[in-house]
Nucleic acid binder design. Structure first.
Lengths: 130, 130
DNA sequence: CACGGTTTGACAATCATTCTCAACATTGCT
DNA sequence: AGCAATGTTGAGAATGATTGTCAAACCGTG
C-alpha cells in the first residue's frame, strides 16, 4: 500500500518543477533550500519507489551517479541529452525495438532489453559557446 | 610516456584471458588468485589508462559498477550481454548510427554520441534452467 | 479517536573508487 | 653495467553515493 505523505508529495512536486535530470542529492538539496525538510534517505527511497512505479526515469551519469527525471511520456522511450546544458528531449526509437529483438534472436538470445541514450550539443549551446 | 611494468602486463593478460565484462574488483581478485600481487589502486589506474587508450571497453552494470573488457574489434560497436551468465557478443548497429544522427539533428543537436547496449538471456542459459 | 502497519530520519555501515606519498622500478643515457 | 630522472606502485586513508537500522512519528481506517 502506498501512502501519500508530506515527503513523498514534496519529492513529486520537486520533480514536476524540474525539466532535467537531477541526482538524489541535488533533489534533496533543492528541497532543503525550499525550506522543506526531507531526509536524504527518504529522498532515495522515494525516488526508487517512483522509479519502480514507472513515474520517473533513471539513468546513470558518466561518473556512475544515478540521476532522475519525471517521465513525460508513459511508454518505453529514450533520451537525447545536451552535454553542455543538460537540456533533455524524450524520443522514440522507431525500429530500434525491432532491431534489438532481431539482433538478439539472431544470436540466440531471448527476453531482450535495451538501453539507448543519445547525447549531443543543442542549438542554443552551439551558437552560444566556444 | 607509458612504461611497461609487471603490473600493467598482468592486467592486460588477465583481460586477454577473459571473454566477459568484469569489474575492477573482480580482476584484482583474479590476479590475486593467480598469485600475481597487484594493488587494487593499480588495477583501477591501469584499467582507466587502457580505457582511455581505447584498448578496453567500459560500461556500467545495473547497480552502477564499472565493468571492463578487452576490445575485440577496433571501431565503434555495441554489446549484447546475457543477464544470466554474462556471455557477451559484440554487435554492429547498421543504421543505428544514422538514426542517432538524424534524430539528433531533427532536434537541433550536433556532435551526437550514443550509447546502445542490449541484454537478454542466451540460449544455453534459457535451456539450462529456470 | 484509537490502532496497526508505513514511513521517516539521524546516523551508522557499505562499497566502489580515488587520493596520498614514500618506496621502487623502468627507461634513456653514458 | 651504472645512474639519474621520472613514471609507477601499494597500503591505507579519504571520499562520496547509496543502503541499512530502528525507534519515533504518521496515515488511513474502523
Amino acid at each position: 500500500m502506498q501512502r501519500m505523505t508530506r515527503q513523498r508529495s514534496a519529492v513529486t512536486e520537486a520533480l514536476a518543477g524540474l525539466e532535467e535530470f537531477r541526482s538524489a542529492q541535488q533533489i534533496h538539496e533543492l528541497l532543503r533550500e525550499q525550506g522543506v525538510g526531507v531526509g536524504l534517505a527518504t529522498v532515495y527511497r522515494t525516488l526508487q519507489s517512483l522509479t519502480e512505479d514507472g513515474d520517473v526515469d533513471v539513468l546513470r551519469s558518466a561518473d556512475g551517479e544515478a540521476v532522475y527525471r519525471k517521465c513525460a511520456r508513459s511508454g518505453h522511450h529514450h533520451h537525447l541529452v545536451c552535454r553542455r546544458c543538460g537540456r533533455t528531449v524524450e524520443i522514440e526509437g522507431p525500429g530500434v525495438e525491432e532491431w534489438a529483438d532481431q539482433v538478439g534472436s539472431a544470436h540466440g538470445f531471448s527476453a531482450i532489453e535495451h538501453t539507448v541514450e543519445l547525447s549531443g550539443v543543442c542549438a542554443p549551446c552551439r551558437s552560444a559557446g566556444a
